[in-house]
Nucleic acid binder design. Structure first.
Lengths: 215, 215
DNA sequence: CGGGATCTTGATGTTGATCAAATGCGGTGG
DNA sequence: CCACCGCATTTGATCAACATCAAGATCCCG
């Protein structure tokens, strides 16, 4: 078991306001906040008044049990949004995995925001429910295969895939230990299905075989 | 391993339109459809054009792996809503657990619907993400304890709790086998934490102890 | 009252967790 | 550019929790 002490490495610094493509329509452009690796973006229990769009970097959203067990419910990459909540209170923690730039978008209770947020919320809901199948019913190998394919797809099929997170993060996302994740990587490598160019750089060699594994 | 053949026991019959309290504001009242126990409400891949409000009964929403492994992502009870999707295609199956009456609410792409659907989607998202923690990081006993408390809470603290679903359903919701679910029930009973009045009628004796178990 | 389905209980097997140690990657400073 | 150091990762040995396989016991419903 591991302990996750809240790091609070540094407060985010705010940049001057910069025009960036990909911002949500209709929302007033917001300045970017920078978060160093490992720093907290928000904590469970905090008041929520905004959601966030990632300009660069990567974010983990997670929940803790009182004894320190951690479940990462989602990773978010550049271009993705996260942080919307049901009742204006954060139910999860969010941390920058690496140096990350985030645009906070204030919530207004108007119909426009609803209309824009709804598809994002629904997409997140589908993703979470699909991940339930992985955690509830798939083996370690199937979980890792599904994870790698998901990361590849979300990076636009970029090959090799760049994993922004550690093995510990992957384990806490897949409901596995770091050792099991490592063993599965090794097994996939030995079977020639992936190739590792550095710890966080994975080339998917046999896309189809991997897809078959994850069903 | 179990197989889940699609039942399609019967097509739902439609009642005459009846005024029922609890329908969503602003939506035109819709007739109720009746689904017998085990019948399909919608299937994965089907076109989605409505969402559903349960008048009475209970519904399971689930996904299957190709070899038949099943993960129930959510149970829905009377008064609850389900079936909204990100891209007008159903990504899951929904079945009536028992004889169930459902009000289908057609989707219009207007702002009003967005505003009403958003909180429901966000609530569902939070629930799904919390369930990820259960499936990824909790033991069998913790899972069952959390499940019982959740069911109790959703029935308004009604004691004893009425479980509309089988042990198999509970197992497929909690990522456990039917045998493990049964053994945990027995253990909780032997420790005096719950009392069973019939298979599907559970009295929670030690609420706090159960809460401590599930963290 | 009978019979099938559901649930419980028992014996054994397997997967992944845990405990422990070695390896090697990546960043730093010389 | 290279050597060193700390930490993440890998690898190995053992253990525990839950799954699987196999009977029984109950419930429920006609």
């Amino acid at each position: 078991m591991h302990a996750y002490t809240s790091s609070r490495i540094a407060l985010p610094s705010q940049s001057a306001q910069v025009g960036v493509p990909g911002a949500l329509d209709g929302a007033a452009p917001q300045p970017i906040s920078f978060y160093p690796a490992g720093s907290e973006i928000y904590a469970q229990g905090e008041k929520a008044g905004a959601f966030y769009q990632i300009e660069f970097g990567a974010v983990r959203v997670y929940r803790l049990l009182s004894d320190g067990r951690r479940q990462i419910s989602a990773f978010h990459l550049a271009g993705e949004t996260f942080g919307f909540e049901a009742d204006s209170t954060h139910h999860f923690f969010a941390e920058a995995i690496n140096a990350t730039g985030v645009r906070a978008i204030r919530l207004a209770a108007d119909a426009d925001v609803s209309r824009q947020l709804l598809p994002l919320a629904l997409k997140g809901l589908t993703r979470a429910q699909e991940h339930l199948l992985v955690l509830g019913r798939q083996t370690a190998v199937e979980r890792v295969a599904a994870f790698l394919l998901d990361m590849a797809e979300r990076q636009g099929g970029l090959d090799p895939v760049e994993l922004p997170m550690s093995r510990l993060d992957i384990g806490d996302y897949l409901g596995l230990t770091i050792e099991t994740v490592s063993r599965v990587f090794t097994k996939l490598k030995d079977k020639g299905m992936i190739r590792l160019h550095g710890l966080r750089n994975v080339e998917i060699v046999k896309h189809d075989t991997l897809r078959n594994i994850s069903e």
